[in-house]
C-alpha cells in the first residue's frame, strides 16, 4: 500500500494546527471510498487492499485529531524520536528547566504519598481532599503554561512549513517541541494520579 504518512494520506500539509471540520470531511470522504462493502465482489487482492486502506485511514484519523498524538506522530515522522530511555533522551535544550521540573514533580509525588497516608490513617475526608486540591493548583498552572507553549511552537512550526525553512531551523524547533512533549508526560501522569485519588 502506498501511504507515505498520515498527513499526505489525508491530503494535508504536515502542520500542527488542524481544521477539525476539514479533517472530519476528508476522513468521511475517504471512508466511503475505501469502504470494504464496495469491494465485496472484487478480487481477493483488491478486497484485502481496501481493508488495509480502511484500517490505515482509521489510524490516521485517530492520530491526527488528537493534539498530543499529532505532535508525537510528527516527531516520529521527522525522526526526532520520543524513545524509551531516561536522561539520555530527556529535554536537552534547557537542563536547568528540566531539573526544576523534575524537582517539582518529585515534590508533588511526595505530597501525594503523604495525602494517601493521611487518608489511610483516617484523617477526615474534607481535610485530605482540600490538601489534594491545593497540591493540584500549581501543576494545573504548569499544564496551562505548557498548553500555551504548544500553541506557540505549533504556530511557528506551521509557519516554517509554509515558508519552506532550512533543515537546521526545522530541527531546532522540533527539538523544542520534543522537550515540551516529554515534560508534558510527567505533568499528565501527575494530574492523572491526583484525579485517581480524588475519585476515591
Amino acid at each position: 500500500m502506498v501511504a507515505p504518512d498520515f498527513f499526505s494520506f489525508l491530503g494535508l500539509p504536515r502542520k500542527l494546527n488542524i481544521d477539525h471540520a476539514d479533517l472530519e470531511r476528508r476522513y468521511r470522504a475517504l471512508s466511503r471510498q475505501f469502504h470494504p462493502d464496495y469491494f465485496y465482489n472484487a478480487p481477493p487482492a483488491e478486497r484485502r487492499a481496501s481493508l488495509e486502506r480502511s484500517s490505515y485511514l482509521n489510524d490516521a484519523y485517530r492520530t491526527l485529531r488528537n493534539k498530543m498524538a499529532r505532535i508525537e506522530y510528527l516527531l516520529k515522522l521527522e525522526a526526532v524520536p520520543v524513545a524509551i530511555g531516561s536522561s539520555a533522551v530527556a529535554p536537552s535544550s534547557d537542563s536547568r528547566a528540566e531539573a526544576e521540573l523534575l524537582e517539582a514533580v518529585f515534590a508533588l509525588n511526595e505530597e501525594l504519598d503523604e495525602i494517601r497516608g493521611e487518608r489511610a490513617s483516617g484523617v477526615p475526608d474534607h481535610e485530605w481532599r482540600a490538601r489534594l486540591e491545593r497540591a493540584r493548583a500549581p501543576i494545573e498552572r504548569k499544564r496551562a503554561r505548557h498548553e500555551a507553549a504548544f500553541e506557540e511552537l505549533s504556530a511557528r512550526w506551521d509557519a516554517l512549513v509554509d515558508g519552506g525553512a532550512g533543515e537546521s531551523e526545522r530541527r531546532q524547533l522540533l527539538t523544542k517541541l520534543r522537550d515540551r512533549f516529554l515534560e508534558r508526560k510527567y505533568i499528565d501522569n501527575l494530574v492523572a494520579g491526583i484525579e485517581r485519588e480524588l475519585a476515591q
Binding site: 524509551i84 523534575l102 524537582e103 514533580v105 508526560k185
Partner: peptide
C-alpha cells in the same frame, strides 16, 4: 541524583 523517564513519568531520587 534526581532522574526521570519522561515517557512513563517515573521519577527516581
Amino acid at each position: 541524583g534526581l532522574v526521570g523517564a519522561p515517557e512513563c513519568g517515573d521519577v527516581m531520587k
